[in-house]
């Protein structure tokens, strides 16, 4: 009975996650369509001078995703908590680095006189990257929480589900970031 309940809890967590991903996708789909319409509405479109730091950030986030996946697999394969902690801590730290890197990108733009209201492109850039960072911040807090629990050796079945959910969400945010990068660097430039 309890096992069955735990199983349905696990399934519910995944379903809830996917539903959440649908709503996040719709949020950014609306954002994209606004961008397409806005660009077509006038001839004042200008891209954003993006620093190469963006590529570094992209790399950091990608490695973070890989580490999180590695941690998840290690945990599933054989309960080697020590190794899980290592990988998962790495993923969490790199996640923080990505956000720090994004803040540096925004500061770089400010130094070069590019603000939210400077050009249509910069408006979309700031809104898109900040919205992504906010979503990422939520996922990062979850990772941090799980990390603390893992160090305290408190990973029950519920938290293992949470690790799976957090990892999938983390991958989703990585893919979302690649999409946004394409949107700003290539389509919007």
């Amino acid at each position: 009975m309890n096992l069955a309940m735990a199983g349905s809890q696990r399934r519910a967590s995944f379903t809830g996650l996917y539903a959440f991903l649908v709503s996040v996708t719709m949020f950014f789909a609306a954002f994209t369509s606004a961008m397409v319409v806005r660009r077509g509405a006038s001839d004042d479109w200008k891209g954003v001078p993006a620093p190469s730091l963006l590529w570094v950030n992209t790399g950091v986030l990608a490695v973070s995703s890989v580490l999180a996946e590695k941690a998840r697999r290690v945990l599933r394969a054989g309960d080697r908590r020590r190794h899980f902690n290592l990988w998962w801590t790495g993923a969490t730290l790199l996640g923080a680095m990505f956000v720090a890197g994004q803040i540096m990108v925004w500061r770089y733009l400010h130094r070069h006189g590019v603000y939210l209201n400077t050009t249509p492109g910069s408006a979309f850039f700031f809104v898109g990257t900040i919205a992504h960072a906010v979503h990422l911040g939520g996922g990062w807090l979850a990772m941090l929480y799980l990390n603390i629990r893992a160090f305290r050796l408190e990973l029950g079945p519920g938290r293992r589900t949470a690790i799976d959910v957090a990892t999938i969400y983390w991958h989703f945010l990585g893919i979302l970031w690649l999409y946004l990068l394409w949107l700003f660097r290539f389509w919007g430039n």
Binding site: S23, A30, F31, A34, A41, L116, N117, A123, V127, A131
Partner: peptide
């Protein structure tokens, strides 16, 4: 799930047009 996500985007853009000086909905 689909509809409110879109309204949220729209609301944020509208608020920025008012407070952030952007021009998502405001022409010249």
């Amino acid at each position: 799930l689909f509809a409110f996500a879109v309204l949220l985007t729209a609301g944020i853009l509208l608020l920025l047009d008012r407070l952030g000086g952007t021009s998502f909905f405001l022409p010249a």
